[in-house]
């Protein structure tokens, strides 16, 4: 077991550092009519600052796509381009077969949007807000159905300004799913919600998917992406660090195992200890763990705290951040 540098093809059994990032996006998905969103080389610039730097995305119809990333990663800007609210400085974008930059009017009839925050007149009541929305919307729906669906019946005569943060997000979601649009774009739909409200929002998103709708959402919550999304992308500093189905992303990352060695025991060649704890990243967990256990058995070493686990989205997310921080520090130096 020899640690190897990152990059290049890895044979089974090769141990790699836990902070490695696979930079090539694992984008898959059908093109053409089965694709709800297709983005190639998207670039967006605010003055001299380039917020989005060459993003490729593909979201098949009927799937839930989660865009993860840190604050300022470019998630909301990317969504705004899909919604037709921001100009792109480069790249191609197709949403439901239309260019949102030039065909926003046709697109909005088929798309529901939840903004990251705000968007309501605080002096109107919940009922008045939904009734007004019903008159402005293209797709028909019933305010009563949505009040009930999002547990707002008892708050219908309360002014929006007096709602809690969670209630406002539910009202927001109600307008986004109004009339069951083909594509629903949700910008951080559960930020600031209590567990109950978050659960209800997840249920609503799963219902949309079961109804054949496509959902594109941004989130800070890794467990949300794992629970809801068919396809995930992690965005960092305006670029997609990784993208694909959850299985593809996890399979592209090393799994790991760890154990605490007794005092005086030297670890296998090439494996460093952190205190008395040994940590190994590997692309072939079964083979390397078997070899490690055989090594321990031969020497009669008793391992405590032995743990083995596949890569998690959290590992990948943090490795992307760590890699970037390391790169920045190196560049500064």
């Amino acid at each position: 077991m020899t640690p190897t540098p990152t990059g290049g093809p890895r044979p089974p059994g090769t141990v790699v550092a836990m902070t490695e990032t696979v930079s090539e996006p694992a984008v898959t998905g059908a093109g053409g009519r089965d694709t709800a969103v297709r983005v190639r080389g998207l670039r967006v610039r605010y003055g001299t600052f380039e917020a989005v730097r060459g993003v490729d995305l593909e979201v098949p119809r009927g799937e839930v796509f989660a865009l993860l990333g840190t604050n300022g990663a470019g998630k909301t800007t990317t969504l705004e381009v899909l919604e037709g609210f921001q100009r792109r400085s480069g790249g191609e974008v197709s949403v439901l077969g239309l260019d949102p930059g030039t065909q926003r009017a046709a697109l909005r009839a088929r798309m529901g949007i939840q903004l990251q925050e705000g968007g309501f007149v605080e002096e109107l009541t919940v009922r008045e807000t939904l009734e007004l929305w019903g008159k402005l919307a293209v797709r028909p729906d019933r305010p009563d159905r949505l009040l009930e669906r999002f547990d707002l019946v008892h708050r219908r005569d309360v002014r929006v300004g007096a709602l809690s943060g969670g209630e406002k997000r539910r009202l927001d979601l109600a307008t986004a799913v109004w009339g069951s649009p083909e594509l629903v774009v949700l910008d951080e739909p559960t930020t600031g919600l209590d567990p109950g409200s978050r659960r209800r929002t997840w249920d609503a998103i799963q219902e949309l998917q079961e109804g054949g709708r496509t959902v594109v959402l941004t989130t800070h919550y890794l467990e949300e992406a794992e629970a809801l999304a068919d396809r995930v992308a992690i965005m960092h500093e305006g670029r997609l660090a990784v993208s694909g189905t959850l299985e593809q992303i996890l399979a592209s990352r090393p799994a790991g195992f760890s154990a605490t060695l007794p005092d005086g025991v030297t670890p296998p060649d090439g494996v460093a200890l952190d205190g008395r704890t040994l940590r190994v990243s590997t692309t072939d967990l079964q083979r390397d763990l078997t070899a490690f256990l055989a090594w321990a058995a031969e020497r009669g070493v008793r391992l405590s705290d032995l743990r083995a686990a596949p890569a998690s989205l959290a590992d990948i997310y943090h490795s992307i951040r760590t890699d970037s921080d390391t790169r920045s520090t190196r560049e500064e130096a």
Partner: peptide, 10 residues
């Protein structure tokens, strides 16, 4: 308050 933006999605 982003009301204009929201209404532009209607």
């Amino acid at each position: 308050t982003r009301v204009l933006k929201r209404f532009r999605t209607s």
